[in-house]
Design a protein around this nucleic acid. Structure first.
Lengths: 197, 197
DNA sequence: CTCCGATGTTTACGACGTAAACATAGGTCG
DNA sequence: CGACCTATGTTTACGTCGTAAACATCGGAG
C-alpha cells in the first residue's frame, strides 16, 4: 500500500496514466516504454510484469480512450432533444474528443485492434460503435431516417464523423479554431442526415 | 551509371521504392531506415546523403502515395458520365486505393504533413484535394449540388470518403470482401450527395 | 591530368525493446 | 510467531535502431 516502497501498489494503473500523458506530449512516435517507466519511478523492465509488450500498453491506453469517448458521447447525447439532435450532438462530441486529445485519438485507431491480442480494447471499441447504432435506431424509429439497414446507416454516419475527426486533428482542413471545426462537423452531420431521410 | 559500382546512380529513387515495398510488408511500425538501406545494397548511413532523417524518407513515400492516388482518382473520374457519377467514382477510387495499399495509405496520413519540413509531400496532398474540389464544382455547376460554399462541400465529401477508407483499412467495419467495402462506399457517397442537393 | 565535391562506407554513441537472472515484500501455512 | 512462496520489482545483458563524424572513392570541371 505504501506509495514509495519496493512494491508500488497499483503500478499497472500508474503506467497507463503516465503513458497517456506521455502520448499527449510526444505522440505515438516518441512514445517509449522506458520513459513511461521513468515517469512512474520504476525500473525500465517493471512494466513487463503488467504488459506482455509495448503494444499491450498502448492497447490499454487505447481502451481507456474508447471508454472516455463512449462516456462523452453518451453525455452529449443525453435525453433532451429529438433523436436527430442527439445523434448530431454525439457526432460533434466524437470530433471534439479527437481535437482535444489528438494523439490519444490517433493511437486508438493506429492499428487494427487485434481481437486476439487485445480483447479488452476491442470490446471497448465495439461498445462505442454499439452506442452509435442505438442512436441511429432511435432516429429511424422516429421516422427521421430512411429505412436503410441499421448497420449501413450507422457505418455511414460513423465514417463521416471519423473522417472529419481524423482529417481535422491532422490539420488537413485549413480551419483555424476548434470552434470552426466543430461548426463544420455539425453542418456535415446535418447534411448527411438530410440525405438519409 | 553502372549499377554495381561504388556510386549507385539513382539511390534516392531506389530508396523510395524499397521503402514503399518495406512499408507494404511490415507497416509503419516495422519500417526501418537500415532495412531500406539493406534492401538497396547500400550501407546504413547512405540514405543520409539523400534524406535529412527518417521522417523525410517517409514523407517522400507519402508524396509518392499522393501522386498515385491523384492519378487513380483522375482516371476514375474520367470524362464520361454526369458530374455526379464522376464524383462518386473518384470517391470509390479513393477507398480502393486505401484498401489496396493500406500501409501506404496510413503513412500518408500518419503525421500532420508539416509544410515547412516536407513541402513536396504537402503540395502533392493539396493537389489531391484540389482535384476533389474541381469535381465538386462541376457538380454544383450542373445543379446537382446545393449551393453551399465549395470548400465546405468538398470537405464534407472528403471526410466521408476518408473516414470509410480509414476505418475499412483498419478492419473496423466487419465487412468481408473489398467488393463489399466498395459497394458500401458507393452507397455512402450517393446518400451524402442526396443530402447535398 | 589533377583536384574537388558529391556520394558511399566505417566506426561510434546513446536509446530502445525485450529477456534472464536476481531481490524483496507481504500474505499463507506450519 | 516464524519460515517459505509468489507476485512484483531490479539489474544486467543483447541486438537493433537513428544519427553523427571521420574517412574513402568516383566522376566531372579546370
Amino acid at each position: 500500500m505504501a506509495h514509495d516502497s519496493y512494491h508500488h501498489g497499483d503500478l499497472r494503473a500508474a503506467l497507463v496514466r503516465a503513458g497517456l500523458e506521455l502520448i499527449r506530449e510526444v505522440g505515438a512516435e516518441g512514445f517509449t516504454l522506458r520513459e513511461v517507466a521513468r515517469r512512474s519511478n520504476v525500473s525500465h523492465a517493471a512494466p513487463y510484469r503488467h504488459f506482455r509488450d509495448k503494444s499491450e500498453l498502448t492497447a490499454a491506453i487505447a481502451e481507456e480512450g474508447f471508454t472516455i469517448l463512449a462516456k462523452e458521447m453518451r453525455r452529449a447525447a443525453a435525453a433532451k432533444g429529438t433523436p436527430r439532435q442527439r445523434l448530431v450532438r454525439a457526432g460533434r462530441a466524437y470530433v471534439a474528443f479527437a481535437l482535444r486529445r489528438p494523439e490519444h485519438f490517433k493511437v486508438m485507431f493506429a492499428t487494427p485492434l487485434d481481437a486476439e491480442r487485445h480483447p479488452a480494447a476491442r470490446k471497448a471499441a465495439d461498445e462505442d460503435f454499439a452506442g452509435l447504432v442505438s442512436l441511429v435506431v432511435a432516429c429511424q424509429e422516429a421516422r427521421q431516417l430512411r429505412a436503410l439497414p441499421r448497420l449501413t446507416v450507422a457505418r455511414i454516419t460513423w465514417s463521416q464523423v471519423h473522417g472529419i475527426a481524423t482529417l481535422a486533428c491532422n490539420g488537413q482542413f485549413q480551419l483555424k479554431s476548434r470552434a470552426d471545426v466543430l461548426a463544420f462537423a455539425g453542418q456535415a452531420m446535418e447534411t448527411l442526415i438530410e440525405g438519409l431521410r
